[in-house]
Every structure is written in structure tokens, then in C-alpha cells.
């Protein structure tokens, strides 16, 4: 259903089904975020997409990624309150993942270069946004990794922090990770997803002799779409 709403005093249209953050960005406004990706469900973990939303008489601070576009709401992107809270969120994130280069760059863009909080692990790059997990579950449908533990011991890992046997080595998690903390390499026709301890031999194209995808992944695909495995013997270019 189409609804009318306001951003910074100007009227726009959207639908109730979409994410407010998506709508805000569609109209060219900038709001920072780390854990949001349009391909998966919003999670509201990084807290960076904070905006102020006025709904009738009530006005509140909320994450825009998991807020719906509602009829008649007014959205404010950089009020004093938003700026103040966003700064705090950046400071907290910097203390969680001091080694995350991309996070430091984004924080610097918003004028935050230092954190008053004491980092627990100077080497940590993961902000526990869960984006890798959501992509693996919702897009790839491999469900190879998950959060483990909770509270201060919460972490993202493969089961038992051992080889993720359900991982098909597609690298989608590596691609979406906002802080580049998963790591993938390809050596001697073996693809390794470092953080999930997964090493997969690559299939060599029968025509052009180039490695193009992990054999395990092609087996899974052939099974899922119920096609003859031989169809995946050649790389997409040679098919």
C-alpha cells in the first residue's frame, strides 16, 4: 500500500512493506549503517541508522532499518539528538572492534576518531552485526554459521568453531561483511573461507581448464535444482 511520509520536511511516497532506511536512501539522503543489506531481513544491530521519527504527537529516536514506512510520519535525519546518539554508537562500536578499518573510516566521516571506552580486544574486527549469518541463511540457504553464546561472550562462529561443514564456499558472507573480518583466499585450487575453517577444492572447467567454483558447491546446486551434475562440469563462460 502506498503511503505518504516526510523526510526533513519534504513529502515522499513509499510502501508499508519496505524498510524506512531503504526509502530514505532511495530519495538520496545519507544515513550510515553497517548491518543493513537490502537482500536480507533488517536486524537493527549496528544502531547507526538512527533517525528521529514523529508520529502524530509522539517523537522518538529509532533505528530506521527495521522501522516501517508509515502514513504521515515525519523523519528527521540529523537533529541534535540523532547526532549525539550516533556519536555514542560509533564510540561503542570502535571499542568493540578497534581493528576494523572500514568502521574507523566510517566513524571518521562522521567526526568520531576516538573512543572513551576501553576496548576488550584490540585485535577484534567483528561488530557482531550478524549480516554474514543472515545472508548465509536467507540468500544462500546454507545455514552454515550462527551466533554462539550471549551477552559478553556472544560470538559469530561455525559450529564448535570447527570446519563449517554446511558451508558451500560461496563467499557471500565475505562479500557482505561490513568490516572485512571473515577472509577468503584461493591457493592451489583450494578455496578457503578462513573464519569458518572451510577449505574446498575447486572444480576445474573441462574446456578452459580454469578453476571456477568449489566442487562441493556445484554438487549442492545440482542437488537443489535437480539437474544433471554434468551440466556443472564447465564454467559459465564455456557452457
Amino acid at each position: 500500500m502506498t503511503v505518504k511520509f516526510k523526510i526533513q520536511g519534504r513529502t515522499y511516497t513509499g510502501t508499508q512493506e519496505e524498510s524506512l532506511l531503504g526509502a530514505i536512501r532511495r530519495y538520496g539522503y545519507e544515513v550510515p549503517s553497517l548491518c543493513y543489506h537490502e537482500a536480507v531481513s533488517p536486524y537493527g544491530a549496528c544502531r547507526l541508522c538512527l533517525v528521529e521519527v514523529q508520529k502524530g504527537k509522539r517523537r522518538k529516536l529509532t533505528t530506521s532499518c527495521n522501522y516501517p514506512v508509515l502514513e504521515g510520519i515525519e523523519v528527521f535525519l540529523d537533529t541534535e539528538k540523532v547526532v549525539r546518539h550516533r556519536k555514542m554508537v560509533f564510540q561503542l562500536l570502535l571499542a568493540v572492534a578497534p581493528a576494523a578499518k572500514k568502521l574507523r573510516e566510517l566513524a571518521a566521516e562522521y567526526g568520531v576518531t576516538e573512543t572513551p571506552f576501553v576496548p576488550e580486544d584490540e585485535k577484534n574486527e567483528c561488530i557482531l552485526c550478524g549480516l554474514c549469518n543472515r545472508v548465509c541463511k536467507e540468500v544462500v540457504e546454507a545455514d552454515a554459521i550462527s551466533f554462539a553464546g550471549r551477552g559478553t561472550s556472544k560470538r559469530m562462529e561455525s559450529p564448535y568453531d570447527e570446519t563449517a561443514e554446511a558451508c558451500i564456499g560461496c563467499g557471500a558472507c565475505v562479500h557482505v561483511c561490513p568490516t572485512d573480518c571473515i577472509g577468503m583466499k584461493e591457493e592451489n585450487n583450494i578455496r578457503s573461507i578462513l573464519r569458518w575453517h572451510r577449505d574446498l577444492p575447486m572444480q576445474i572447467c573441462k574446456k578452459c581448464n580454469r578453476p571456477f567454483a568449489p566442487t562441493f558447491q556445484l554438487n549442492e546446486f545440482a542437488k537443489r535444482v535437480n539437474l544433471d551434475r554434468a551440466r556443472f562440469d564447465n564454467c559459465p563462460d564455456c557452457r
Binding site: D143, A144, S146, A148, P159, A166
Partner: peptide
């Protein structure tokens, strides 16, 4: 059920021990 999901559950609740 994916192993990852069971692992998440069994590490979340402190009444479970691995």
C-alpha cells in the same frame, strides 16, 4: 535442522552444557 542453529541454541542457554 541446520547444525549451526542447534549450536546457537545450545550455547545460548546456560542450562545446556557442551
Amino acid at each position: 535442522v541446520p547444525l549451526a542453529r542447534i549450536y546457537a541454541l545450545s550455547t545460548f542457554f546456560s542450562s545446556f552444557s557442551l
